[in-house]
Amino acid sequence: MTTETSTWTTKKGLAQMLKGGVIMDVVTPDQARIAEEAGAVAVMALERVPADIRAAGGVARMSDPTMIEGIMNAVTIPVMAKARIGHFVEAQVLEALGVDYIDESEVLTPADEANHIDKHAFKVPFVCGARDLGEALRRISEGAAMIRTKGEAGTGNIVEAVRHIRAVHAGIRRLVSLREDELFVAAKELAAPLELVRGIARDGKLPVVNFVAGGIATPADAALAMQLGAEGVFVGSGIFKSEDPARTANAIVQATTHFDDPKVIAEVSKALGAPMRGIALEAIPEAERLAVRGW
């Protein structure tokens, strides 16, 4: 029997197992256990949630390996961790630690303003952010086995997440409507490989799983993302910046499963306490917006 590890099928397959689920940002083993208990399908181990990264300013880097290992030892669900855009050595370190997925993330300060990580070179799978279809396809061509639309992390404001998931799906619908001989120009306009563009036109969907991230703070936010075509959600600051994290986490899990059942969403939204306060997008200067990082 020949066995092969870390194939494209197993890399994107893990993301397929996470579908319909909620991936939660956690900064301590205790938070990781709360997330697992609430029904998270995976946790993102990081030193500070995006809202605190935003408040602290400075350079945001990969988390301390001790802290990531502490979280890996605390839970049985998959553990993800973030590397800076283009920082392939941070990614090598995370792979050596044995994390289950690496997020090449705009939430951290980019390390390279031209190149993303060559993700084909790694055995561990990667998830990457995207604002539209072209960006998603560029990341997939670099080896991303999962996509998440970016939203605007750490704001508790869903508006950017809605813009990005709509943009991805509008891009897909447009490709499906084109003639075969129009796909060459479409690929040029999207700045994406022709083969991937042809695949979208044929299948009507991305070749990898697509989650929504960046600004989800309530069960209704999660259900909105799902109804707009997300296959699952990342919730960062929205859980552990809320008044009652365990209840909020569980309510978002329930709303993600029953995203098309308003009665259930109403039921789980009752008496949750205050969500994270949130920031209006206009209040964030252009230079401090995270979603524009990545190219």
Partner: peptide
């Protein structure tokens, strides 16, 4: 036994 082969890096394909 859950996760009996280890973490994601040990995920694999094989003919049975």
């Amino acid at each position: 036994a859950r996760n009996a082969f280890g973490r994601q890096l040990e995920s694999f394909e094989a003919d049975l």
